[in-house]
Each structure stands twice: as C-alpha cells, then as structure tokens.
Design a protein around this nucleic acid. Structure first.
Lengths: 211, 211
DNA sequence: GTCTATACTTCGATAGAC
DNA sequence: GTCTATCGAAGTATAGAC
C-alpha cells in the first residue's frame, strides 16, 4: 500500500457497518434500512454499491477467506517445525489459531459465521470443509509423521487429530456462541490456560516412554 | 396414563408442527401463518391456544427440560458405578448422552436449541448452565473420586473433565449444526465409533501403570 | 373454537428527480 | 451517488360474527 487512506468510501462504510450489525444480530435480523442509518444515507443508496443484501454478506465472507489464507505456515516451515518435537509444534499451532481472530473485525466475522452456519448453506459448507475437515486432516498427517519418526507413541493418527482438534472446536463454540458478551481479553486468558492444560495432557499421553 | 389418546387436540397439533418448523428453519423464520397452515386452521385461531408466538417456544423448551430431567442416573447408582472402574463408567456415560436424543421429537428440539442458542438469551443461559457447566462439574467430581480411590492417575480432575466432555460437545456441534441433513443412524454409527476411540484413548492415558 | 376481515408494521427493492 | 416516493409482499396480532 502506497498511501494511507484517511477517509472511508461509502462502500467501505456499508461493509464495516454490516459486519457490526450482522455479527450482533444475524443476517436476517438486520434490515437494509438499519445499515443505511448506520452509514448515514438512505436505504435506496445502498443499491448503488451492492446489488442486494446478500451481496454484502458474500463480500464479507470473501474478505474473511482471503484474510484466513494469508495466515498459516508454508509447508516447508511446518516440516521443519515437526522436527522440533510435539511440544513446540503444539505451541505454535495454538498461536496460529489465536492469530486468526487477532483483529476486532475478524473476530466479528467469526461470530457472524457462527450464527449463519445454521441458516446459510454456503457458509455451512465452508465451515465444514475449511474450518473443520481440512485442519483435522492436517493434524492427522502431522501425527502420522511424528509416529513414523517415533517421536510419539503409535496411536491411530486420526484419533489423535480428533483428540487435539475437537478441543479447539469446543473453545470456538464456547467463545463465539456461549460467551460472546464477555470481555475478550479475560476469555482469552482462560482459553490459553485451557489450551495449555489440554496440550500438556495430550503430550503426557502420547510421549514415548523414557526409560 | 389411563387411556391412550387416539387423536391430538389442536393445541397439541400446534405444538408438534411448531417443533417441526422451528427445528428446520429457526424461530424467527417461521410465521404464525405457516404454523396455522400446517395445522389446518387460520392464523387467528392459534391465539386461542397460545398467547403469542413466543409462548409456543417457551412451552417447547419447558417440555424439553422436563424430559431431560427424567433421564439421568440417581446419585447412589452413580457411586456404585464408579466402583466398577473408569471403563464401565465411560460406557454408561456415553449411553446416557445418546439416550437424551432417543426420540425424533427430542432430536428436533435439540436442533431447535442449537439454533436459538445464538438468538435467545434464555435458551443460551439454559445451555451454558445445564448442558455445559453442570455436566463438566459432574465429570470433575467423578474424576476426583477416581483419583482418590487410585483408580486412575493423578491429573487435575477439571482438566480431565474438559478432556472428556469437550469431545461430547464437539460431537453435538458436528451433528446438530454441521451435519443435520445426514441420516441419523449412519451418523450415530460413526459417532459411537468416535466416542469409543475417544474413551479408549483417554483410558490408556489415565490408567494406573500396571507393573 | 374457528372463521373473515382488518389494522398496523416492517421488509427488500425500484423509479426517477436532482 | 444521493435523494424522495412508492410498491408489493409478508409479518404479528386483534375484533367480532358464527
């Protein structure tokens, strides 16, 4: 980016306000009029920037996906990381998941996705494939490699993937669905402690016997 | 019950149809007209049986709670069960959770609760307290007893409770949110296998060393 | 207890002036 | 690109006849 923008375009304002409102109330419960009011224009003007209400949602989801794909480790780095053992790998892995909700805007879109996963088939498919099945497979492959390298005990790698990742999904559910009203920082402190307990337990369970 | 009813009252029909529709589309997306159409009456007639739309939902949730409280083990049985060791306890525990979705109607209300947990504060509080925190505490106490009796290794019992129960919540989320369209029986087969893997892993991790 | 009729509100979206 | 004005559809709920 060459120059920093000082003022937002109307389209960007619509985008931002929509994220705020959709994440608070859900897509269906937010009206075009409400968005327009938030931006400070009339509802008819919205249609000069987006074809309809759903197009705003689609744009938000596309933005989320592109942001998500920018984080994550390159494959060669992941391989090098495995060499350092499961403990380091878990720590870096946990940090990666947390980084994905690192901005207030991304946090809101996470919440929005949580809500709309029930109603919207496109979003539900996205969640299933890219936020659940894909990570599970990555963890399965990771455990498989660790087992081959005799870094951990020989359990079924898919079982291990579920053991690790179902806890992450649980925390996601707890935060975005059940406790969203709470303060983010205080929840995050607790979540980090829970993740630490979880990985510590897992490490103890899968470590190769010493003597 | 002395005599079996052969025909449903209008109020019961409204109740049943509402469960069907609310669980499929969510409370807000279902109109009074739609319910009336399903029952075969006009929408104004609904108000002869329920004060308003929300009263139907409240009645459904009350029914769910009363059904839920009828399952579960008496405390003395639970204590006796612990004596038989963690393996038996896990098996009975898993069966208990599955029994709570044993009728088609209860399954639908579970789905309804999953949807409305986002929107409805009363339902969200109910979920947090009675479906999450209460079971976690029960499991924590159970593990505490097992540790005292030296039946399992001495981990933090709360950590163990999360290790066991976060997986159950994950399965709940997977079924009711992500894969509800799938066939119940085929999902249940897979879920039972996953639970078996999960408890097997946990048992191996927490068992007292043999030699 | 069900009906018709209706009041009232809010919604998404469009037409056309400026 | 924003505005005013407006449409048609759909929502909850009530009044009153039968």
């Amino acid at each position: 980016m060459i120059s920093q923008k000082t003022s937002k375009t109307t389209k960007e304002k619509i985008f931002d306000i929509s994220i705020d409102l959709f994440s608070q109330k859900g897509f269906d419960a937010v009206s075009i009029r409400e968005i327009a009011r938030g931006v400070g224009i009339r509802e008819s003007s919205i249609y000069n920037h987006y074809k309809n209400k759903e197009a705003i949602l689609d744009t938000i989801i596309d933005y989320f996906k592109s942001e998500l794909n920018q984080s994550g480790l390159p494959e060669e780095d992941a391989e090098a990381l495995i060499e350092q053992g499961p403990k380091v790998f878990f720590e870096v892995g946990a940090k990666m998941y947390i980084e994905k909700i690192n901005t207030p805007q991304m946090e809101k879109i996470w919440r929005l996705i949580s809500i709309e996963t029930y109603h919207n088939e496109k979003i539900r498919d996205f969640f299933k494939k890219e936020l659940l099945e894909e990570p599970i497979t990555i963890w399965e492959n990771t455990f498989q490699i660790m087992i081959e390298k005799k870094m951990i005990k020989s359990f079924n790698p898919r079982t291990l993937a579920y053991e690790y990742f179902s806890f992450i999904i649980y925390l996601f559910f707890e935060y975005f669905v059940l406790r969203y009203d709470d303060d983010f920082d205080s929840f995050m402190d607790l979540a980090l402690e829970k993740i630490a307990n979880h990985t510590e337990f897992l490490l103890e369970a899968i470590k190769v016997k010493e003597e």
